[in-house]
């Protein structure tokens, strides 16, 4: 099933405000999402919060697509509006090494969520107030949710130094 285009007053307003910086408005199984240019993400989320009532950032996450040329990662922001009772996702496609701006300036909850994305994918959020690993040990090397990281792979040096064993397997 293909994603279908989505058009209403919200898309018109966003289109007028952002022009070419928003790329697509789509729905899949009746769930709306906006594909935006990476540099527009924070401005778009801020606009949606203050002008369209999407005042609750549900989640921030990422998906790794290693085979996709030029833009290996999707970063996804899920937003909800209490006023409209509606959800919308903002999706940006970024290359490995690109540092998207943090959205902690708009939503405080992004702090831990972006830390987790950094921890799992190695995406560094520019001007994040406290970008440390959150679930994995601080001196672990490697980013587990990348597709090239095998499920049995581990940081052998860390395991040896901290657990005193040759291998965790």
């Amino acid at each position: 099933m293909e994603s279908l285009p989505w058009q209403d007053d919200l898309t018109a307003a966003v289109k007028q405000q952002f022009g070419d910086r928003v790329l697509e408005f789509l729905t899949y199984r009746d769930q709306k999402f906006i594909v935006a240019a990476p540099e527009a993400a924070v401005a778009l989320i801020e606009y949606l919060k203050f002008e369209a009532g999407f005042d609750y950032l549900v989640d921030v996450t990422a998906v790794h697509w290693p085979k996709r040329e030029g833009a290996q990662f999707d970063v996804i922001y899920i937003l909800y509006s209490f006023e409209r009772n509606d959800r919308v996702r903002v999706k940006v496609k970024i290359a490995d090494g690109y540092k998207p701006e943090t959205v902690t300036t708009v939503h405080l909850t992004a702090n831990w969520l972006e830390r987790e994305v950094f921890d799992m994918f190695g995406i560094q959020f520019a001007s994040h107030p406290d970008l440390r690993r959150i679930l994995m040990p601080e001196d672990w090397s490697g980013y587990p949710l990348r597709k090239d990281y095998s499920i049995i792979q581990m940081d052998q040096r860390w395991v040896k130094e901290n657990l005193g064993i040759e291998s965790g397997q």
């Binding site: 099933m1 994603s3 899949y28 199984r29 769930q31 549900v58 989640d59 899920i78 959800r87 996702r89």
Partner: peptide
């Protein structure tokens, strides 16, 4: 499932 993505809560 066919390729796609959903968020359900």
């Amino acid at each position: 499932p066919v390729p796609g993505e959903v968020y359900v809560s």
